[in-house]
Design a protein around this nucleic acid. Structure first.
Length: 851
RNA sequence: GGGCGGUUAGCUCAGCUGGUUAGAGCACCGUGUUUACACCGCGGGUGUCGGGGGUUCGAAUCCCUCACCGCCCACCA
């Protein structure tokens, strides 16, 4: 169907076709040539291999794609590195659920069979999100897809582990960890979230060993008392100083507990006497190590009381708590409700059980220093700047990272044991009797290598030379520590260079009602539903399906929404993007239906409005480029919208209507259109590509088009004159509207000093200028001149209108004059401000005079 | 407990290195002169810039304070 017959832009018809052309043209798969200074690269935050596109991916994908297309058009060899993450716990949990629904379990089928099932699952769902990225228009390098579980990637992971072990940064230790009973694994501090809960606080009497009274301690976890190995009091607490060094008896167990002094104990909380359970409380663990106390575990990794719990062994924590409180009977001296925060697993949602466990840890202090330095000295810039402080604060207080996980789906530790021996190496050790550690690495361990392991590191890969360091890392705030900081640390350690120059932290898009987007709350919005017209989720008041907005509209909308802080989703902004695409489409139709046959794009201004639009195009381009470079995408998007609507369509195309579309005008129009499409392409690639294809004198794909270097200077004179024309036309239109004069009625008018724009004003303001000396029936002072209307005006309406305008001017004059009469203002304000106010007052008075 | 951010039109947000009568999109109201677009054009701002105090010739903008909302960090039993 020819463009002339398509009155409306239909993204659903166009986008799949265009996406297919991009893929076939291989523009996304650059040759690994040159080095990172000539090239532009971004490593996509690898989505969970079996995940689906959510709003965060859509926003982040748009940001990265806009950057990639922007730099590609400006001469860079660009690579957007594609890949997915094996996502240890998340994926394992999904497959386990599947097994349970089949009446089976991972334990039942065993490790090898389970891993096969996960691979099958991956093959089944692994392509979904990649297809969705294609629909969004993301120009990822689809021919070089990586997976954090690829053979080569796995080798890189093992090498890093082995190297860090040999450097003494990775070690095995019995230490307090966050045990997640839900996943049956230790997890890192970052995977823990604090939630507020109401517990009971029990006051329990511990008798003194010498029979001389008792000591009352307060606890919310009586079940852990079985593992108590001391009682601590503050050395300055006069209530207890006489007890320090003496011994108490642990009820139910009979263990002797030394009474120790430590400033850690608060005198004004609880009873001022703290039971110390090094086996099950992080603080007590620290105190225990400090004071050399025994560490007794009474809770096992299954979340049940273990053999050290005596008669309570086998009970769950909750059961044991009740049973112990009951057995203590009279020793319980008080029970109060207590609101406090306790750790929960971010993954499984279960309450964390702190316990001592033999795990692999990574010392972070040595890695953190350089990672702080590169942000401080600007080798890595974090946008917005407020986030770099968070980054530095976290790194300055960093603690060892527990990297081992008791899962099956992940990189198995390259560690073997034989009796007391430990072997760490990339390959299995020689000799018999070695048993490999069953644990796997935290998923974030492998993710931390993403920017270089995807490019072939540690091999001397041409891709690494060409595209590392990458240019930008774009992501959401929530993984600044979990991922970004660790990539910087690992990048510096293993490649000697930063992994990226800029970090862009984008907004989190909330549901329209301000809540977090979530499927279970019904507040989630699937970007694909916006693109193709799926159902509106319950969070929208109105029901029904979204219109098929198309990928360009979604991309524009998300960019328009983006900010330095979190924002609410706004369907209107997506609709605005749809309107922009449609507007460009129709402006192009208009041009193509009118240009002279054989015309080619050529910058060739003949008239003042031609000069004006060429100048405004330069301004729009400079503005867009500045906004993109400072990561201010919403301004970039709105700037583009304003240019297309507010300058190109509303004014320029209206101003040229009626002119002879000769070869010169046709060429100039095609030029303006071509440059506009090229400028807008990074944000709305589909519609611009489609129109480019229909534009005479363009070769190949717009996506592969190199922008011509910016030519020419701004034309101040044309900009000033057309600005005046616009002001006059708008003023006349406003005047007509409020004076009740029909928009189409031709009026006789008179004006002076606007010779250069008189014809343009006459056309769009529906005026017929004359030198007739007839008296004016109405006057409109505007933009340094006065439009006098001679005919077609009801004198009463005109008089009313004039009176209203007079009173407006008088009000402003009064205000300006008052300001200038204020001695303080004249004396203290800067001279140019005062002068501007004077000039304004003069102008207002002249306007009033003209009335 | 500590820290950060927010509160501007009916809605979503700009503006905040102090200086025109505070803006945009959508919604809303009015209206259709035209060689593309009714997913259109043209015209219209509907506001106690969260409350209070202060600095200043001048405050949405700077300072203090209060309120509410959101987020991050944190080892008070």
């Amino acid at each position: 169907m020819s463009l002339a017959d398509r009155k409306r832009y239909e993204p659903s018809e166009v986008e799949p076709r265009i996406a297919e052309r991009w893929l076939h043209a291989r523009i996304n798969s650059p040759a690994p040539e040159g080095d990172s200074r000539d090239n532009y690269s971004i490593a996509v935050p690898p989505p969970n291999v079996t995940g689906a596109l959510h709003m965060g991916h859509a926003l982040n994908g748009t940001v990265q794609d806009a950057l990639v297309r922007f730099h590609r058009a400006r001469g860079k060899n660009t690579k957007w590195i594609l890949g997915t993450d094996h996502a240890g716990i998340a994926t394992q949990t999904q497959v386990e659920k599947l097994l349970v629904s089949e009446g089976s379990s991972r334990e039942e089928i065993g490790r090898d069979e389970f891993l096969k099932r996960v691979w099958t699952w991956r093959d089944q769902y692994g392509g979904t999100i990649i297809e969705q990225f294609k629909a969004l228009g993301a120009s990822l390098d689809y021919e070089d897809e990586r997976f954090t579980f690829d053979e080569a990637y796995a080798q890189a992971v093992l090498k890093v582990f082995v190297d860090l072990y040999e450097d003494g940064l990775i070690y095995r230790d019995n230490y307090m960890v966050n045990w997640d009973p839900g996943s049956g694994s230790a997890i890192s501090d970052l995977e823990v979230e604090e939630r507020e809960v109401t517990d009971s606080i029990y006051e329990i009497a511990y008798p003194l060993a010498d029979g001389d009274g008792e000591l009352i301690v307060a606890t919310v976890r009586p079940e852990t008392m079985l593992g108590d190995t001391a009682i601590a009091v503050n050395p300055a607490d006069e209530r207890y100083t006489h007890l320090i060094g003496r011994t108490a008896i642990l009820p139910l167990v009979g263990r002797e507990l030394p009474i120790i002094a430590d400033e850690y104990v608060k005198t004004d909380f609880g009873t001022g006497a703290l039971k110390i359970t090094p086996g099950h409380d992080p603080n007590d663990f620290e105190l225990g190590r400090k004071h050399g106390l025994a560490e007794i575990s009474v809770i096992g990794e299954d979340g049940r009381m273990n053999e050290n719990a005596g008669e309570f062994a086998g009970q769950t924590v909750t059961q044991a708590r009740a049973a112990i409180v009951e057995r203590l009977a009279g020793a319980v001296r008080g029970v109060e409700p207590h609101v406090h925060t306790v750790p929960f697993s971010h993954r499984s949602g279960e309450r964390i059980e702190p316990l001592i466990s033999l795990q692999w840890f990574m010392r972070m202090d040595e890695l953190a220093g350089p990672a702080i330095d590169v942000v401080r000295d600007g080798r890595v810039t974090i946008h917005p700047p407020s986030q770099s402080r968070r980054y530095v604060d976290w790194l300055e207080n960093i603690r060892p990272w527990c990297v081992s996980r008791q899962l099956w789906w992940g990189h198995q530790l390259p560690v073997w044991y034989r009796g007391e021996e430990t072997y760490v190496g990339a390959t299995e050790p020689e000799g018999d009797g070695w048993v490999r550690d069953a644990d796997v690495l935290d998923t974030w361990f492998s993710s931390a290598l993403w920017p270089f392991a995807t490019l072939g590191w540690p091999e001397d890969d041409p891709r690494l030379r060409a595209f590392y360091p990458t240019d930008v890392l774009s992501t959401a705030r929530d993984i600044l520590f979990l991922w970004v900081a660790r990539m910087v640390m690992m990048g510096l350690r293993f490649t000697g260079d930063v992994p990226f120059a800029d970090v862009y932290i984008h907004s989190v898009i909330q549901s329209p009602d301000g809540r977090r987007m979530s499927k279970s709350l019904g507040t989630g919005i699937d970007p694909m539903d916006l693109i193709t017209g799926g159902p509106r989720p319950p969070v929208f008041k109105e029901g029904g399906d979204f219109p098929a907005y198309g990928a360009d509209a979604v991309r524009f909308g998300l960019m328009a929404m983006s900010s330095t802080q979190d924002v609410r989703f706004s369907e209107e902004k997506v609709a605005q993007g749809q309107a922009l695409a449609n507007k460009l489409f129709n402006a192009t139709r208009f041009v193509l239906m009118n240009v002279a046959a054989g015309a080619k794009p050529r910058r060739d201004p003949q008239t003042i409005e031609d000069r004006w639009i060429a100048s405004r195009l330069l301004a729009a381009r400079a503005d867009f480029e500045a906004r993109v470079q400072e990561f201010d995408f919403s301004k970039a998007a709105f700037g583009l919208y304003d240019f297309v609507y507010g300058e190109l369509c509303d004014w320029y195309l209206e101003l040229i209507k009626g002119r002879d579309f000769d070869a010169r005008l046709s060429g100039h129009l095609l030029y303006v259109l071509r440059e506009t499409l090229a400028l807008a392409h990074p944000l709305i690639p589909f519609v611009t590509e489609e129109l480019w294809d229909n534009l005479p004198g363009t070769d190949g794909l717009l996506a592969a088009h190199q922008l011509s270097p910016e030519r020419g200077a701004r034309d101040e004179q044309a900009e000033a004159e057309i600005a005046q024309a616009i002001a006059i036309i708008s003023a006349v239109r406003t005047w007509r509207e409020s004076a009740g004069v029909k928009p189409g009625e031709m009026l006789q008018a008179r004006a002076s000093g606007i010779a250069g724009i008189e014809a343009l004003v006459a056309k769009l303001a529906r005026l017929k200028f004359t030198a007739d000396g007839a008296p004016a029936v109405a006057t409109i002072p505007v933009a340094g001149t006065t439009i006098e209307l001679l005919t077609g005006v009801d004198p009463e309406e005109a008089a009313r209108k004039t009176a209203a305008e007079r009173s407006r001017l008088e009000g402003e004059i009064k205000r300006a004059a008052g300001k200038l009469e204020n001695a303080g203002f004249v004396a203290k304000a800067p001279a140019d401000v005062v002068e501007a106010e004077r000039q304004k007052l003069d102008r207002l008075r002249a306007d009033l005079e003209a009335l």
